[in-house]
Design a protein around this nucleic acid. Structure first.
Length: 563
RNA sequence: UGGGGGAUCGUCUAGCGGUAGGACUGCGGACUCUGACUCCGCCAACGGGGGUUCGAAUCCCUCUCCCCCAGCCA
């Protein structure tokens, strides 16, 4: 009964179109405008467009929708190509630009004029806005609406020839100024822009609008299903209008689905831009950014991202997905893939008073608890060690089973130790622990069966590798920062914390982007830009789930309620 | 107030006239040389009101709420 496979509504449509013979092959396109970096929302669109085609043996175009020069650049084009590739998709020879079709588009516009379906308007932008009317009032016809075909053709040719300045004229479709759909009130088709184009260079000084270029580009590429987000829903009548008038050989169908919004993250291009321009983040690829470049640098695995958008699903309902969903996908893939290592982020020194000086033992540590085939590594153990400050509490609650004065704890892959003495500085801070180890409890030896409740991680002081470790948290405190006018008020001031950590020597070998689990802490990888052999710079990808932290938090809240 | 869409556990999502299911989260427990992982269990939803029907999340009517549209942006 549960065997019936379930498809989202778009895959259902595509399945039906294939089954009915309406299409023999599915052709889709991913059409970003190269005016910014791709973000988590685009991951959804990329996976959908490339996914449905791949699943049905079809093809997908990567089309740069570059109809508005001045906002677009080569930098963004390159970033888009890099990001789509990184996600694991291949457009082969199907990299196109809307600008590749400027010639055909121009001819189509002329045909529209000849058919009496388009005219050159000489109203100013402000006047056009006034004439358009409002949501509840019909618009008025422009005084230029009834120019003759000859005059329109002449004017349009002269627009193209560069005889007019920016804004002097615009080519408009002649549809219906009283349409309840604002998009049908004689939308602009072409505007004059005397600026060079990132792909077409100086060839043009008039540029087509999205609505005119998009559907026709789809037709030229024989796109069968043109998938876009919900806000284009009421552009569909216009999309279809152009196809109805110009009757291209292939007729694409536009289908809309809802955007993917991630809680506590912005995907508005304008807001992303603000973050970059004001230096709130270090760039488009700052590891806190929800851009694909940022997530890649942060260390999010591709498989996790793809799984995430699959779980999010394809529907028409507005979504605001919890971070936890993404984090779960990341932990799931990394938990299986990432080798384990040890690192101390906030070091506290431990001296084993009964351990011989100038002695080093090599402890064998498993690289993955569930995958013995990944082998082991040797960890040097000596008299002076770093442990995590959090793993010691002078006055510990009953449930705390790490180290406390007089208490015992196991050092992972090492010995059981007892805390004998707490050393403090003048300010009263704990600066050192003097402990004794139990020689009979060495990990893996026959006599090591004695159990203690807690196990903590450690690094030998003498052998430790210094590292600057970047701990990231959400960029915003507001669940939906997209909806906030001033993002500054929504920023999380603690989105980045940098600590000086101590790494086990094996971490010397880590290569850029290679993710490992620091046991009991989380998943980490070297920063692809700032890390170097001489100075380790490590990003925290995501923490481990931490039920102790949760308990602590609850206890804290209860305490606050009592007080 | 015009037009276009959308409402199912806290969050995603399945359902297509026949027992409202899954994932994430949350809660409880088992296990543990990672308070991780894994395993077990639990909480939790059809926006409201009418109808049709033996039977409605599903069909009809109605109300409510949410999102999008007044760029020479995409």
């Amino acid at each position: 009964m549960s065997e019936t496979e379930t498809r989202d509504f778009i895959r259902q449509i595509i399945h039906d179109d294939l089954e009915s013979g309406k299409h023999a092959e599915i052709v889709t396109r991913f059409p970003p405008e190269p005016n910014g970096y791709l973000h988590v929302g685009h991951v959804m669109s990329i996976c959908l467009n490339f996914g449905v085609a791949a699943e049905t043996g079809g093809r997908t175009y990567l089309r740069l929708d570059d109809t508005n020069p001045g906002k677009e650049s080569k930098e963004y084009v390159d970033a888009i190509k890099r990001d789509v590739h990184w996600l694991g998709f291949d457009w082969e020879d199907r990299l196109t630009h809307a600008s590749d079709y400027f010639g055909k588009l121009y001819e189509s516009a002329c045909r529209l004029i000849e058919m009496g379906c388009a005219y050159v308007d000489s109203l100013s932008a402000d006047e056009i806005r006034e004439y358009r009317g409002t949501l509840t009032e019909a618009g008025r016809n422009s005084p230029y609406r009834n120019r003759s075909v000859e005059e329109n053709l002449d004017l349009f040719r002269r627009m193209r020839a560069g005889e007019f300045g920016d804004g002097e004229h615009v080519l408009r479709a002649r549809i219906d100024m009283s349409s309840p759909n604002m998009n049908m009130r004689d939308p602009a088709l072409y505007r004059i822009r005397h600026i060079p184009h990132q792909n077409a260079g100086d060839e043009w000084c008039i540029y087509p609008m999205y609505d005119f270029a998009h559907g026709l580009s789809d037709a030229y590429e024989h796109i069968t299903h043109s998938l876009c987000t919900l806000e284009f829903e009421d552009h569909r009548p216009l999309y279809d209008w152009f196809l109805d008038q110009l009757k291209p050989e292939h007729r694409p169908r536009q289908i809309e689905f809802s955007r993917l919004n991630l809680a506590y993250a912005v995907t508005s291009k304008r807001k992303l831009n603000t973050l970059v321009e004001e230096g709130i983040v270090s760039g488009w690829d700052d590891p806190r950014m929800p851009t694909i470049a940022g997530m890649r640098r942060r260390g999010y695995p591709v498989a996790a991202l793809r799984e995430f958008v699959t779980r999010a699903g394809v529907t028409k309902k507005d979504k605001l997905i919890e971070m936890g969903m993404l984090e779960n996908c990341i932990r799931e893939t990394l938990g299986e893939q990432a080798e384990r290592r040890m690192a101390v982020l906030r070091p506290l020194k431990v001296i084993l008073t009964n351990y011989p000086e100038n002695t080093v033992e090599m402890m064998s540590a498993m690289n993955h608890p569930a995958r013995p085939e990944l082998g082991t590594r040797e960890m040097p153990f000596s008299r002076e060690l770093w442990i995590e400050q959090d793993d010691f509490m002078e006055e510990a609650p009953r449930k705390f089973f790490r180290l406390r004065p007089g208490g015992e704890v196991r050092l992972r892959f090492g010995y059981i130790i007892r805390c004998d003495e707490v050393v403090k500085n003048a300010a009263g801070d704990v600066v050192e622990l003097r402990c004794s180890y139990d020689p009979d409890t060495r990990s893996g030896t026959g006599s090591s069966n004695r159990k203690v409740k807690g196990t903590i991680h450690w690094v030998s002081c003498e052998h430790a590798v210094d590292a600057s470790v970047r701990l990231y948290d959400r960029l915003f405190n507001e669940a939906n920062p997209n909806a906030v006018d001033d993002i500054h008020s929504a920023l999380n001031p603690k989105s980045l914390e940098v600590v000086d950590g101590k790494l086990e020597p094996a971490l010397m070998e880590l290569s850029a982007g290679q993710a490992v689990q620091f046991e009991r802490l989380g998943y980490f990888c070297p920063d692809e830009k700032d890390d170097s052999a001489g100075a380790r710079v490590i990003n925290r990808i995501v923490t481990l789930r931490d039920s102790w932290a949760k308990l602590e938090k609850q206890a804290m809240q209860q305490q606050n309620q009592v007080v």
